[in-house]
Design a protein around this nucleic acid. Structure first.
Lengths: 133, 133
DNA sequence: TTGCTTGCAAAGGGTTTGCATAGGA
DNA sequence: TCCTATGCAAACCCTTTGCAAGCAA
């Protein structure tokens, strides 16, 4: 995969980046498709998927693998996420990048440790409210 | 979802538990299907999926969500996993349960933090060998 | 003009589900 | 016997892909 190949700035591509920059909801591809379609009614889902892939490969957006559904984040700075166990929504967790000590893991596995994925689980404010009711 | 409803110990269910207990490869549902089918040729994939779901809901086995494919682990004790970035295989990482400090996360989110998913990434011994060649 | 991009639709991979039958307790 | 569980196959969801036409550079 040539992740260095320059990308043409097509209307579709630009709108995807713009919409992703506007929200903090970490949309899925179909969700983003709906956002973009409001401004460009002849866009296709396939184009959304293709571009999210290309943009993520170049580090222009962030791909979030979270329990089945893939989500995307316009914020490419290092941060973690927390998923609501009730409604599935995703929030940001802005902490220093070193919440996990990979050396500890490296000591107890014969794998060569090169990174980690960390996701928190919990309840979003809305669901916590409903829960206590 | 009534996670408390008792389960009948059918032949299929028992074989799934037995096969899952034998291996340390964290098989996917189709992989387990092949294992079970060796001993019960009229089993169906749907039954495997249904049972893995039911057993995981009851904490009798562990469900592992790992980058797209779902895997299962007969070992329900707390431990982490590490995924090989090259071949996709999964290894165990047996460390104390507190590799992640949830309080730090709780301090910077309005979610109610209740847990976390942590997975390490790296290279398995076999792939590391190939990589250096 | 060139060849990357797109829209469309079909294909793909993994998982779930409806239904009539089988079989634990 | 009663009702859960199964086999089978179709349905589903999400994502990828082939192809001819479109459009940035």
């Amino acid at each position: 995969v040539d992740r260095e190949r320059p990308l043409r700035m097509t209307r579709q591509r630009r709108l995807i980046l713009e919409e992703l920059g506007k929200v903090t909801t970490h949309p899925t591809a179909p969700e983003l498709y709906n956002l973009v379609r409001r401004r460009l009614n002849r866009v296709s889902l396939g184009t959304i998927y293709r571009n999210l892939q290309l943009l993520a490969d170049r580090g222009m957006i962030q791909r979030i693998e979270t329990g089945g559904v893939r989500r995307f984040d316009g914020n490419v700075e290092q941060h973690y996420h927390i998923r609501c166990e009730r409604c599935g929504c995703l929030g940001d967790v802005h902490v220093g990048p070193s919440l996990v000590d990979e050396k500890t893991a490296a000591a107890v596995t014969d794998f060569d440790v090169r990174g980690h994925h960390l996701e928190f689980l919990g309840l979003c404010p809305e669901c916590a409210k409903k829960e206590s009711a």
